[in-house]
């Protein structure tokens, strides 16, 4: 296929309650494309966690999902504060989420590890004060 299928979502950082909507929309699209349920679930979880992160830490951003013949690629791009120590951030249980977010049940420090776990590749490019771009792929 020469043309590629791409969905872009504006993840609204001002409305915490709408976080996760891009993940639901992507799930619906992948279902209609006939992907098996386990692939859909992995993409949905990785994307959901990423979306939540963008809303909690970066005031929102953009999520782009591209469907390739052999893989699904998710790019999450924000202009937030950046991640100071990526290796530390990848540790399970490490979290910088504020208390009000934790009281909602988020911020357990499982977001990034969960994204890593559910995808086949994941790269983080982050610069302090500039923003973070996370690229994940799930092989299909």
């Amino acid at each position: 296929m020469s043309e590629q299928l791409q969905f872009t979502f504006d993840v609204n950082g001002e409305n915490f309650t709408s976080a996760g909507e891009a993940s639901v929309a992507t799930k619906k699209n992948l279902r209609m494309l006939g992907y098996p349920p386990d692939i859909i679930r992995r993409v949905a979880i990785a994307m959901y966690e990423g979306e939540i992160n963008m809303v909690i830490h970066a005031g929102g951003g953009f999520a782009t999902v591209t469907v390739y013949p052999d893989k699904i690629e998710i790019i999450l791009k924000d202009n937030g504060p950046g991640i100071a120590d990526v290796a530390l951030a990848m540790k399970e249980g490490f979290s910088t989420a504020p208390e009000n977010i934790r009281s909602l049940g988020f911020g357990a420090g499982m977001g990034l590890p969960n994204m890593k776990k559910n995808t086949d590749t994941m790269t983080i490019e982050s610069e302090l004060g500039v923003g973070t771009t996370i690229t994940m792929t799930v092989n299909t």
Binding site: M1, Q4, L5, Q6, F7, R31, M32, L33, G34
Partner: peptide
């Protein structure tokens, strides 16, 4: 029985329909 509502009869056709509908 898993019977999701897919569009098109094949993945390629589904992709075409979705690109076009976007």
């Amino acid at each position: 029985n898993y019977a999701p509502q897919t569009i098109g009869s094949s993945r390629a056709e589904a992709m075409r329909i979705m690109i076009e509908s976007e």
